[in-house]
Design a protein around this nucleic acid. Sequence first.
DNA 1: CCAAACTTGTTTCATTTGTAACCATTGAAA
DNA 2: TTTCAATGGTTACAAATGAAACAAGTTTGG
Lengths: 148, 148
Amino acid sequence: MEPDILELESFLPYRLYRLADTVSREFSKIYKDRHGLTRPEWRTLSGLGERGTMTATELGEQSAMHKTKVSRAVAELERRRWLTRTPDENDRRVEHLALTKAGLAAYREMVPLAKAFERELLGRLGVEERMAVVEGVAALEKALEEKN
Amino acid sequence: MEPDILELESFLPYRLYRLADTVSREFSKIYKDRHGLTRPEWRTLSGLGERGTMTATELGEQSAMHKTKVSRAVAELERRRWLTRTPDENDRRVEHLALTKAGLAAYREMVPLAKAFERELLGRLGVEERMAVVEGVAALEKALEEKN
DNA sequence: CCAAACTTGTTTCATTTGTAACCATTGAAA
DNA sequence: TTTCAATGGTTACAAATGAAACAAGTTTGG
């Protein structure tokens, strides 16, 4: 291997990105085909389904989305009547977001599909490999938190 | 853990995406600050630097980019006079792309920075962790190729 | 108190992206 | 041949994104 050449195919940032892109594209079919959701919308649905109630800021933190993405996803889900906003009593800048019945129903429908997707993906791996994936991802996450 | 709840923070597609996004964002500073390149432009530069000469289609395959991204990236690098197109003798639809002196210079400047970035990132991990990352990424790549 | 600084969330604007239509050319079939 | 499908690459259009400005509200420090 020449010292002044970069092998893109082996370069970790590229490989990670391609991996995530492929997986994400594949998975997005599920919520796109099913309900025409975008990724931010799916994450918002998922976050609220999991936690019950959150503010937009909390949502952004939990699901690693920029606040403009959150804002737009929330607006769209509200338009669909999948979530409602409740003004905070003490701080009138803040709104508490929660899923409606319809939103919850969509969430409940999605959860098994998401889990099945993940299971199927990991199911293609051997035990060792699966462990490596889990460990490797966790290690990188830790390394990135620490740095920043 | 409730059976009908999805923990986004542990969901592999989400974790992968966030990981790749963070790493890619961090790395992109290097080529963005340095030369104002976009990711497709960087990949094009990198691909041609590595292989010497490629067609647009080959570039797309090597660097996992949609052909419109390739087309636009190539156009921009050409505008900068970082690459040239040479029509194929036998097939007039095809153009062979290659870096100019200036393009090669930029590439040569970027390579050590890219390598240093990767080294630094992996350097934050222990030996075991590093192995898990490499193994895990490879395993997922294999699993995804096979499927599709 | 009150002004300045900060926070929450939205909007505007420019850029990036993806899909689909497209043009030109080639290859294959009739 | 002539026609028709396939391929390489570009372009047009709509949607998604990010940065920065913004409005409204809250906190802090004098």
